[in-house]
Amino acid sequence: MFQIVAMEKNAATATGSERLTGRIKGRGTPKNDVGRFERLARVAVDDGWDTAEEEMPLRRTHVTCERVTKVVTRNTSPDVPFDRSLNPYRGCEHGCIYCFARPSHAYLGLSPGLDFETRLIARPNAAQALEREFMRPGYAPDVLAIGTNTDAYQPIEKDRRIMRGVLGALQRFRHPVSIVTKGSLIERDIDILGAMAADRLASASISITTLDAKLARQMEPRVPTPARRLQTIERLATAGIPVRVSVSPLIPGLTDHELEAIMQSACDAGAVAASTISIRLPGEVSGLFQDWLARAVPGSAAKVMARVRQMHGGRDYDATFGTRMKGQGTHAELMRRRFQTACKRIGLREHLPRLRSDLFVRPARAGDQLSLF
Rank of each mutant, 00 (worst) to 15 (best):
T209V: 12
R309V: 00
Y139G: 03
D318Y: 10
P353S: 02
E55H: 05
P155E: 06
L293K: 01
G113P: 01
L355D: 05
F321T: 10
K31E: 15
R132G: 11
I251Q: 04
H257A: 15
A11M: 11
K9G: 00
A266V: 10
E187A: 14
I192M: 04
M219Q: 00
R172I: 00
V43R: 12
S371R: 14
A273F: 03
Y107H: 14
A227C: 00
E54W: 11
L144C: 04
T73V: 12
M135S: 14
T73P: 00
G91R: 02
A301S: 05
L167I: 10
P81Y: 03
I121D: 00
E117Y: 03
P353M: 01
R336N: 14
L114W: 05
A127L: 07
S371G: 15
C267D: 13
M311C: 14
D316I: 05
R39I: 12
A237W: 08
F2T: 10
A152E: 04
D159V: 07
D47Y: 13
H94D: 00
Q3P: 01
F173N: 04
L58M: 11
E234R: 15
H62G: 00
I241M: 08
R164G: 09
T69Y: 11
R67L: 08
R354Q: 13
D142C: 12
R337A: 14
Y317K: 01
P226T: 05
A129I: 04
G270R: 09
P252M: 10
L288A: 05
L144W: 07
D46S: 14
P221V: 02
G322Y: 13
G299D: 10
R222P: 01
R84S: 05
G113Y: 06
G240T: 09
V285Q: 04
K25R: 15
T29G: 06
A127V: 09
D368R: 01
P88H: 06
L58V: 10
M305W: 15
I206E: 08
